[in-house]
Design a protein around this nucleic acid. Structure first.
Lengths: 167, 167
DNA sequence: GCATCCTGGTTGAAGGTTCAACAACGGCCG
DNA sequence: CGGCCGTTGTTGAACCTTCAACCAGGATGC
């Protein structure tokens, strides 16, 4: 925890930016989530798991790698894969090199479901993100995203360093 | 549903922007949510309810208005206020002008909790958003947010129009 | 007045996420 | 080998969100 003695509050203009940003993100992700749920019966987090698997060599990945690719916790992934397995979209295999390991593999059925879901999802993304922004704004959004991501990554590194400092 | 016969897929560059954006948003909101949960015992959605109430005249709002301010469904809000009421941060009152209505009001305790939570939350927002972006990028982010929001708003209107068209 | 429809709000069940606890395995060092 | 620690993955409970169903009260039309 940093020093809270001098909080740099947001001024009026900053608040406007902040709220506009949060509103847009909330509505946007909610829209995508609802679209996928309605048309393909899965939330966006599950769709991204299928995408990650489909792009992996052999359409299979170890759970821990899958978790890191999807920015997901192990626990969440474990629950999610359990559901995807019950649907018959993914199957679990033993990992030959490490007996702790578990490998999630996309089934043919799962690949088909993903192919069917992709069209609607991509269309929604294009309509509500790419089509409403100019090329200039898109470039800017990419830069902004990378900057925010970088800020969070170094932050996590800092947090880890502080943890060690406590010991 | 629109015509899916010619899906305009994302090219490589577009995919990069898309993934960078989603990664940044996911990590960012997760970070804020975790910070609030850890330091103040509530998720961000609940924090925003308290904020909305604190800014309303008399620190009270009707449920439906509160829902629209917070971009929340009625159901979600109902559950959330139930929890906030159990904590003693919000109380429900009858609405004098409409006997169906229910009014959520921030308690003194709730206001105190909000004040205590605000410092850490605003600090996190500043560190991971405002501090990592240039003034130019912030202006751009505001424009982008407004454009996306507008795109979703007209889309909702279209959806509603299509609903009517079906009848 | 009354039938009808719409709006405001709540509820319960089902599904998703988080957190803490745990079991099982690998790696390392004595 | 044997003890110890870090990693991998799962589990169950608690919590949050969503969805559909529902009740109660206003609004409209006859």
């Amino acid at each position: 925890m940093g020093d809270m003695s001098e909080v740099r509050w947001l001024n009026g203009e900053e608040q406007q930016v902040w709220r506009a940003f949060m509103t847009a993100v909330t509505k946007f992700t909610e829209h995508l989530d609802r679209q996928l749920q309605r048309d393909s019966g899965m939330p966006m987090a599950y769709y991204e798991i299928l995408v990650a698997l489909s792009e992996a060599p052999g359409r299979a990945l170890r759970m821990s790698e899958l978790a890191s690719v999807c920015h997901s916790s192990r626990s969440r992934l474990s629950h999610a894969v359990a559901r995807l397995e019950k649907e018959g979209w993914v199957e679990r295999r033993a990992c030959p090199s490490d007996r702790r390991g578990s490998i999630a593999a996309l089934t043919e059925t799962g690949f088909g479901v993903l192919e069917a879901a992709a069209a609607g999802h991509v269309t929604a993304v294009r309509e509500h993100l790419f089509d409403v922004l100019t090329p200039e704004q898109l470039r800017s959004l990419a830069e902004i995203s990378r900057a925010v991501d970088a800020g969070l990554t170094t932050e996590c590194a800092n947090a880890r360093r502080e943890e060690f400092a406590d010991l």
